[in-house]
């Protein structure tokens, strides 16, 4: 299969797909993470909590699979990167895992028991899980863009505190606020009543902050991160990515202000997508960039699987990813109604 493609070409295609899959994951999970980040602060009673839960309930599980696909895809296409990424970032990955488990269980079990105390614990579990996921991913990806402390021979010298530099912290905060904004706009779009209005107001305030953060993060990347501009100099077309990110962030604010909720929601997600892609575009051909010296990084050609594995996986992705997207979109249509306040069904 795909014999007309060389191994290097397949590796490049898979790097592109890898960026796409991560991008899709970040945006599809953004609003459910955001809902989790917001729920303890904006839901005043059980009715509103159920509204928020229902606004993400039918979608979050299927959306999270994009993360599993990102991990599984890394394993299949770039085993070396999969191994090193998870080994180097052992504790952050464990935290991410705990966050994912906490979030999932909390959303699913939120109202399975009538005890208000248990419901409260689960609500905070949902929050804590969402926060952990957003932060770890934001910090991790900033570190990927900046480069990990990989010395000669692939030896990792990084430490846990070392991962929390200023750039990484901005990244973490950016991810959290991006998700908060997506969550607010989603709740605003999907629900009716007081909670929708409250979420809408919140989005009006958070979109300008996100815009500033996007600017700061990108400026820091281009000015303060070594080697970030290399690919941009050789391929100036890439500048489209950060430009689109900034434009989308501005649009999100404008739409939110004019109460055009759905366009605001989409713009915010696009801003998120393009910020991440701006970073990913900078590290090519490396997947694990080294901050010590470029040549110590792990590049896609070195990490890629065999021609056969890459082509089988490519065939599988080309056939099944569109099918997945179709039925996931279908579920959004299935649950297109706004969630009213009166509904109190047992989940």
């Amino acid at each position: 299969m795909f014999d007309f493609l060389t191994h290097d070409m397949l590796a490049v295609i898979w790097f592109f797909l890898w960026c796409v899959i991560w991008g899709v994951y970040f945006i599809v999970d953004s609003f459910s993470l955001g809902a989790g980040l917001l729920v303890p602060f904006i839901a005043t009673d059980k009715v509103q909590r159920i509204q928020i839960q229902r606004s993400v309930g039918p979608f979050w599980g299927g959306n999270e699979v994009w993360l599993i696909l990102a991990a599984g895809g890394t394993f299949a296409a770039f085993p070396l990167v999969f191994s090193k990424m998870f080994t180097f970032l052992y504790l952050p990955m464990m935290l991410l895992l705990i966050g994912l488990v906490a979030r999932g269980i909390s959303v699913e079990y939120l109202h399975k028991d009538d005890n208000p105390q248990i419901q409260k614990v689960l609500m905070w579990g949902w929050f804590a899980g969402s926060l952990l996921i957003s932060l770890v991913l934001g910090v991790a990806f900033a570190n990927f863009f900046k480069g990990l402390e990989i010395a000669s021979g692939g030896v990792y010298n990084g430490t846990l505190p070392g991962l929390f530099g200023p750039y990484a912290l901005i990244g973490g905060v950016l991810f959290v606020l991006m998700n908060v904004t997506s969550g607010a706009l989603w709740i605003n779009v999907k629900t009716e009543g007081a909670i929708a209005a409250k979420a809408g107001d919140l989005a009006k305030k958070s979109t300008p902050i996100v815009f500033v953060l996007v600017l700061v993060y990108l400026a820091y990347s281009f000015v303060g991160i070594e080697g970030f501009t290399t690919n941009y100099s050789t391929t100036p077309a890439l500048y489209l990515l950060p430009v689109l990110a900034v434009v989308a962030a501005i649009l999100a604010g404008l739409f939110a202000k004019k109460n055009k909720r759905f366009p605001a929601f989409c713009s915010n997600l696009l801003a998120f997508l393009f910020v991440v892609q701006s970073g990913l575009a900078s590290i090519y051909p490396y997947m694990l960039k080294s901050s010590v010296s470029l040549e110590y990084g792990i590049d896609i050609f070195e990490a890629a699987s065999s021609h056969m594995t890459l082509s089988i996986m490519l065939g599988g992705a080309l056939v099944f990813v569109p099918i997945v997207i179709i039925y996931q979109l279908w579920v959004y249509i299935l649950f297109k109604e706004k969630i009213k306040e009166t509904e109190q069904v047992d989940y």
Partner: peptide, 20 residues
């Protein structure tokens, strides 16, 4: 890697999406 990735693509998406 491939069976795991295919498992996500063919199985987990079906489970996760339709469970919701």
């Amino acid at each position: 890697g491939p069976p795991l990735a295919v498992e996500a693509l063919l199985a987990f998406f079906l489970e996760g999406t339709f469970f919701g």
